[in-house]
Amino acid sequence: MASLASSVRRVTKYKIVWPLLAMAILYLFNLIVVPGFFKIEVIDGHLYGSLVDVLNRGTPLIIMAIGMALVIALEGIDISVGSVLAIAGSMAIFMLEGHSLWVAILASLVIGLLCGLWNGMLVSILGIQPMVATLILLTVGRGIAQLITNGQILTTTNKGYEFIGKGYFLGLPFAVYIAAAVFIIIYLLKTKTAFGLFLEATGANRKSSEYAGVKPRAIFMSAYAICGLLAATAGIIYSSNLSSADANNAGLWYELDAILAVVIGGTSMRGGRFYLGGTVIGAIFIQSLTTTIYSLGVPPESILLVKAFVVILVCLIQSDAFRQMLTFKRKVTTS
């Protein structure tokens, strides 16, 4: 018993345990309540089913949340990512008229990068608080997207572009490979270069890091730039999946899901340590939750309420203080 308790303690030291636990519970619930949730069919050599659906629909969120994790590690926040997603999607589909696929994708990524650099400049050089700084692009971003689309919903029939968000490769949705690639690149950046150390040090104590020779401005700029670039990547997948760009509604409220995914993943909003694996799990959890709620047939008007309730539960599980309260009560009842 004692060894079990100590191994439990050892395991719970890892931050990733809690989002994994939440996900396990959610899937257990699905196993019992939602028939066919785990069923995977092969049609034309492609995998189909709720699980594949979660992965496929979750890719924009996963990619966006990874970028958000870098910004949150700097005690920052980027609430403009939903708008950047809309801008990037609009840009790509607008450029497809008369330009090649690659030019469209490049233009879309460049505009996302510019949005990120703009945010980074406001935060690191002008010293504006991240929430306020990115609020500007949140508001004005959808306006810019509307200018690009001329107020219309643009559509495309470019097969190459549609493949990004709808195509299948080796049985799995192509977008899943993009998300995996993004994760691996950022993970390597974190663990195989000094970027992770500099980012965490700057996020935890900017002054000390600066005096130790780290350039905080460069770190801020790159984190926000990557965040913008990844939001644009998400925008391309999102618009490709729908074959259209809607300046007003594309990625609406996605920024909040992205922030939530990072927090569920164990990264503190106060900056410092950040967890990429946890963030991905957090994003998949949120997408799974959404899919579960739809499969359950919860009336649309209650969906947000149910979601909020589950999120509160997850946050409580994560809170050390809450867990301590639980164990404390247990001790009292046993004694």
Partner: peptide, 15 residues
Amino acid sequence: EGIVGELTIRENIIL
């Protein structure tokens, strides 16, 4: 201005 409290001794030394 000196330590980065959240990081380990190793990371503080290497910074």
